[in-house]
Design a protein around this nucleic acid. Structure first.
Length: 291
DNA sequence: ACCGCACCCTGAGCGC
DNA sequence: TGCGCTCAGGGTGCGG
C-alpha cells in the first residue's frame, strides 16, 4: 500500500520521464470512480500540455502543468505508476502470471486496470497508471483552483514536530494509531509506518491518544521519521502491489519490525507479534515492548 | 468536536 | 473443480 515513502520513491523515479516533456497523447479506460475528472475532459485538458514539475503532498502527487493547471494523482491502495518499459510480476494478475512462462513475463501490455496512459514527446517511454481496485484518483485542477483534498492535509509527516502531535492528542479518547493515520494531522502516514513507528517508540497502538505523554509523542514522531526516511532510502515497501516506476521492488519490507509479522518473534524480546483491529485497521505490535 | 462505521473496488486465499 | 465467503485498506462522508 503506497504511503509516504512509496509515493516519494515513485515521484523521484517518474519525474525524469515526465518533467520537461509535453503530453502528446492520453489514453484512458471508461469513466469510473477512479476519474474525479471524467476521462474525456482529462484527455482534452492534458493533451498538448508540458509538465513543469512533480511534487508530493502527503500521499498525493501533484504535477504542475504549463499554464498553471495541475494534475492530481493518488495511488490509493493498489495504484501503480510506472514506465512502459517496466516489467514485474506485480504488474500481472496471478492468472496471467500462471499462464506465462517466466521468460514471457517481460514487456508490460496495458490491461483493463491500466486507467491512464501518457505518451510524451521525445523518445522516452510512456507512463502508465494502473490500479486494480480503483481506490486511486486522478483529477485535473484549473489554474488557481483550490482542492478540498489537498486543503484538508496537515503537516507532512517528515516535518511534523513531537510537540504538535502531543497538542493534537490532548483530551482525545481515540487510539493513538488512529490519530497517526489522520491525514489532517500527519500527511503521508499509512498502516505500515504507523505500526512501525509505534513499535519503535514502545507505545501500544490502541492506547487512548490523550494518555500518550509528551515524551512518548516525541519518540513516536522521531521513530516515524527515522522509519520513513529509511524506507525512502531503500525504495519503499513492496508487500503486495507496490512497484517502483522501473518495475523494481522496494527494500523496506525486509526491515519491517512488526507489520505483517503476526506470530513471528519480536526482534527485541522474542515474544510473538500480535495482531488486532485498531482504528478499523489491521494492527501489529509486541505486547511486551509496547505499553 | 469527535468517533465509529459503511462504502467505494477487485483479487487472493480458504473452506466445503 | 468451483462456488461463496472473507479479507486487504486509503479516503470520504454520515449519523450519533
Amino acid at each position: 500500500m503506497p504511503e509516504l515513502p512509496e509515493v516519494e520513491t515513485t515521484r523521484r523515479r517518474i519525474a525524469p520521464l515526465l518533467v520537461g516533456r509535453r503530453i502528446e497523447k492520453v489514453e484512458t479506460t471508461r469513466p469510473s470512480y477512479f476519474f474525479l475528472t471524467p476521462p474525456a475532459e482529462l484527455r482534452r485538458r492534458l493533451e498538448g500540455r508540458r509538465v513543469e514539475s512533480l511534487d508530493r503532498v502527503g500521499k498525493y502527487l501533484v504535477a504542475g502543468l504549463e499554464g498553471g493547471s495541475r494534475l492530481l494523482l493518488h495511488l490509493g491502495m493498489t495504484g501503480q505508476l510506472f514506465s512502459s518499459t517496466a516489467t514485474s510480476v506485480r504488474l500481472l494478475s496471478a492468472t496471467v502470471r500462471a499462464s506465462l512462462a517466466p521468460e514471457e513475463q517481460r514487456g508490460f501490455e496495458p490491461d483493463a486496470h491500466t486507467h491512464l496512459q501518457l505518451s510524451l514527446d521525445g523518445d522516452g517511454p510512456r507512463v502508465f497508471f494502473r490500479d486494480v481496485r480503483k481506490f486511486g484518483k486522478v483529477q485535473w485542477l484549473a489554474p488557481g483552483e483550490r482542492n478540498a483534498r489537498l486543503d484538508r492535509l496537515g503537516t507532512d509527516a517528515l516535518v511534523l514536530a513531537g510537540a504538535d502531535l502531543f497538542a493534537v492528542c490532548h483530551g482525545r479518547k481515540a487510539a493513538i494509531k488512529g490519530v497517526l493515520l489522520d491525514q489532517s494531522v500527519a500527511a503521508g502516514v499509512g498502516n505500515i509506518y504507523a505500526d512501525e513507528a509505534l513499535f519503535v517508540a514502545g507505545v501500544r497502538p490502541g492506547r487512548a491518544a490523550g494518555r500518550v505523554t509528551r515524551r512518548e509523542c516525541e519518540a513516536i514522531v522521531e521513530g516515524l521519521q527515522r522509519v520513513l526516511l529509511r524506507s525512502i532510502e531503500t525504495g519503499g515497501s513492496s508487500i503486495s502491489d507496490y512497484v517502483a516506476p522501473d518495475g523494481s521492488d522496494g527494500g523496506y519490507q525486509d526491515e519491517r519490525k512488526v507489520y505483517g509479522r503476526t506470530g513471528e518473534p519480536c526482534l527485541v524480546c522474542g515474544d510473538p507479534i500480535k495482531r488486532r483491529i485498531v482504528a478499523q485497521r489491521s494492527t501489529h505490535f509486541c505486547a511486551r515492548c509496547q505499553r
